[in-house]
Design a protein around this nucleic acid. Structure first.
Lengths: 210, 210
DNA sequence: TACATTAACGACCGATCGTTTGTATATCTG
DNA sequence: CAGATATACAAACGATCGGTCGTTAATGTA
């Protein structure tokens, strides 16, 4: 298993295809994305895909995983550098907004598009997406709980409730920024969470003023 | 223009088709919805559509209008019965959650699905959807401004900011309730807005406690 | 009554969909 | 080196897509 030559080339093009697939799917969805257009975008042939994946659904499942890894690297990892507690919680929110603002994906957010697409459609893809989103929300809840354990959030805080609000305010940026106000919604989403955390934090100086 | 017989039958089936189209589109989107499946669902033939609409896009535009009227009747109108101010603002939020909770549309919310579908796709449908959503958000902002004018909200409130938060918390219910926690997200969304309004209202007794 | 309009249909069009098949070739394994 | 494996392709499959055409019958208008 020297993993080079033919094997390595296979892995490389596999990754390249998945990257393109995630980008395109962030715009038109995982089902809206057709193999023909994906082939054109990657400069390959439709039939070549079936050397890597049994059918379209397998490719979709791998695309979900790839997008999850990208999110972990570009959003979660940078935020984890901040000290645990409300600062890390807010860093997480800011990292997400930065990911959107920098237009890393042409459609803004892969998971948002795919959630809206599959939330009513049973199947393996929906299950995989749901699991990823559950893990993400569980992760936010852990950060909230940790901040509370550190005494950086009022004891009256409902963990699930606050986690829900932070996630909702972040996710809605996608729709609002693309359909109308553009960067203004980024500002709204940032301030909404910042003010909320400052109001609940016994030591507001841990967070920026505005 | 006696408006009966042939003419009336045309209007009736037109409305029936649009109702089906909005329901189906709330699940699979306006483009995801195919004319063949719409024909099956309405018990008519594909080609019959072209007696009512020039092409698929015209049907999509009318579907957007139809969904807007439904929203006005089933969400806005009931809320307007509440007295102006924070009570009407919260009634609006509750009416929306009721609309979702009662599953009036099989996909939960037509506009949510269609926004996610068209936010990156230029064209007449996108413009129509964007206009409808702008009007909706402008409407929420007017309710916030009115509540402030009535002295029912602290003067420090940023109108656009609060309106954004209320809308975001309401809209995110669709994804969360369908993909994982079900009715729990309805509770979260209700409490989030209720607590926010109570905190900003000089006379919290105007609003329910929980 | 005579004529135009309208709703609705079945049959069919070219394009595209996801997928299968067969083939050529480069790379690994023994 | 020999033989299995993996990458990638062109060509073609049946199904479905949005849309056109010609027709039929009921209704509206004169």
């Amino acid at each position: 298993m020297t993993q080079d030559g033919r094997r390595l080339r296979g892995l490389r093009s596999r990754e390249a295809i998945l990257e393109q697939a995630v980008g395109l799917a962030s715009v038109e969805g995982l089902d809206g994305l057709s193999l023909g257009r994906l082939a054109t975008a990657t400069g390959t042939s439709k039939s070549g895909f079936f050397a890597h994946w049994r059918d379209k659904e397998q490719l979709q499942l791998d695309a979900v995983d790839w997008a999850g890894r990208q999110w972990a690297e570009r959003v979660v990892a940078p935020a984890m550098k901040a000290p645990a507690g409300v600062r890390r919680l807010f860093a997480l929110h800011e990292a997400r907004l930065r990911f959107y603002g920098e237009a890393v994906l042409p459609g803004g957010c892969f998971f948002f598009t795919v959630q809206a697409e599959f939330d009513d459609r049973p199947g393996a893809v929906r299950d995989r997406v749901a699991r990823a989103m559950r893990e993400w929300q569980e992760f936010i809840r852990r950060q909230v709980a940790q901040a509370m354990a550190l005494g950086e959030l009022a004891e009256s805080v409902d963990v699930a409730q606050l986690a829900y609000e932070i996630d909702a305010l972040g996710e809605m940026v996608i729709i609002h920024s693309r359909l109308h106000d553009g960067p203004a919604s980024l500002v709204h989403a940032r301030r909404a969470v910042l003010q909320r955390l400052r109001a609940l934090c016994p030591d507001p100086t841990l967070l920026p003023e505005d």
